Each structure stands twice: as structure tokens, then as C-alpha cells.
Computed example of a mutant assay.
Amino acid sequence: METTLATLGLAAAESGPLAPERMTFADDGSIPNTLLATLLFRSRGLDSRLDREAVAHGFERVFATSGWRPSWRGGVYPYHHYHSIAHEAFGVLSGWGRLRLGGEQGEDVDIRAGDALVLPAGTGHCHLQASDDFLLLAAYPEDQRELDLIRADPAEHDAAVSRITKVSRPERDPLGGEMRHWWP
């Protein structure tokens, strides 16, 4: 796995994955967000010999080995939404994208090929802009086989908060690090 992380630009100088940038977002009454940090692992640069399919296979291998089930490839919906019964991870396969995380008043974040992003259950996300070749691989913890999709809606808020509190925390982040380091 270390070799794969290195080719994706996600290996630390010592051993293991890079430490992520951590962001938290307040509950805005429509999107609950969470006290768990959104994690952004920034790639130091993909191995230039990798094409998009090789990047996809690399992320699939690392995610699966870490207990995160690769699920689909695509983009992010262009409206604010979140998931209340699963955490979600993205590996950026190609291009770049700008997402708003945390809801209408959240933070704009740029992600690029090789980056990995972990959205705890309840974290709002929305596509703002992307290159023509922007493509993500999404993954979910092995025990979180179902996925809901909830738009920013105060009427859904309280029931969603109740579900979010019951979502299990994976032992490992999608790159193989111990999740307890990021989500104490």
C-alpha cells in the first residue's frame, strides 16, 4: 500500500499517509454538518506515468484495503446536500473541482487529481466549478452499505441529526491511517 500511496502523492516523508487538513462546519439549521472534521489529504503530485485508469485502480486498492468500499465514479451534484447514514470519501481521479463544503455559508475548497476528501455523515457539499475532465471515485465504510441523499431542508434536519449520531466511525481513514487521530 505504501507504494500506491507514493504514486498517488499521498505518502508522508516518514511512513504512512499524509496528515490531512481538517475543517469543521456549524449546523446552519438546514444542513446539520457535524463535530467530526472533514479531512482533506492533499496529494504532493501524481506519478506522471499514471493515466486516469491507473489512478482509479490505485485509489480503489488503497480504499478497499483500508475498509472503505469503492462505489461509483462521477462528480458532485450542483446543489447543497448531505448523507445522514454514511460517511463518504472521494479520490480525485483527474482534473480539478471547486466544492462548497458545509452549506450555503460554508467554505469553498479546491481539490485536484490525487487528493482524497473524507466527508463525515451530515457534512454539506455542492459542486461549484470543475475542469472538463474532473472525475471522482467515491467510497463508503464497509458497514455503511446504504446511502441517502438529503437536500438542504429545515424540515429534514432533526430526523437527520438523529440518524447521524448513530453512524459508526471506521477504524481507518480511506488511506489507511488510524481514524482516531483525526476523529477522537
Score class of each variant (00 low, 15 high):
Leu175Gly: 11
Val161Ala: 06
Glu171Leu: 11
Pro174Leu: 11
Val167Trp: 10
Leu175Arg: 04
Pro141Gly: 02
Ile164Ala: 06
Pro141Cys: 05
Ala155Ile: 05
Glu142Leu: 07
Leu149Glu: 12
Ser168Pro: 14
Tyr140Leu: 11
Ala138Ser: 14
Ala155Thr: 11
Arg169Pro: 01
Asp143Pro: 03
Tyr140His: 07
His157Gly: 03
Gly177Glu: 03
Gly176Ile: 09
Glu142Ile: 00
Ala152Ile: 00
Arg163Gly: 05
Ala138Thr: 10
Ala159Ser: 11
Leu149Thr: 04
Pro154His: 13
Ala138Gln: 02
Pro141Tyr: 07
Gly177Tyr: 07
Leu149Val: 01
Glu156Gln: 15
Thr165Ile: 02
Ala160Arg: 06
Glu156Ser: 15
Gly177His: 05
Leu147Arg: 08
Glu146Asp: 06
Glu146Gln: 03
Asp173Arg: 09
Leu175Lys: 02
Ile164Arg: 02
Arg151Asn: 09
Pro154Val: 09
Arg145Asp: 12
Leu147Tyr: 09
Leu175Asn: 07
Glu146Ala: 02
Asp143Leu: 05
Glu142Cys: 01
Ile150Ala: 04
Thr165Lys: 10
Val167Asp: 11
Val167Pro: 10
Asp158Met: 11
Ser162Ala: 12
Asp148Tyr: 03
Leu147Ala: 06
Val161Met: 01
Ala152His: 01
Asp153Asn: 14
Asp143Asn: 08
Ala139Lys: 04
Arg163Leu: 13
Arg169Ala: 06
Gly177Arg: 15
Arg163Gln: 10
Ala138Pro: 00
Pro170Phe: 01
Asp158Asn: 14
Arg145Lys: 08
Ala138His: 00
Gln144Pro: 12
Arg172Gln: 13
Pro141Glu: 15
Asp143Phe: 03
Asp153Cys: 11
Glu156Val: 04
His157Trp: 13
Asp153Pro: 05
Asp148Ala: 09
Ser162Cys: 10
Gln144Phe: 11
Val167Cys: 14
Asp158Gly: 08
Arg151Glu: 04
Leu147Lys: 06
Pro174Tyr: 06
Arg145Trp: 08
Ala159Glu: 12
Ile164Asn: 05
Glu156Ile: 01
Leu147Ile: 03
Gly176Val: 13
Tyr140Cys: 04
Asp158Thr: 14
Arg172Asn: 12
Glu171Ala: 15
Leu175Thr: 06
Ala139Trp: 01
Val167Lys: 15
Arg145Thr: 10
Pro170Thr: 01
Pro174Asp: 08
Pro154Cys: 12
Pro141Ile: 08
Ala139Gln: 00
Ile150Gln: 14
Glu142Lys: 00
Glu142Pro: 00
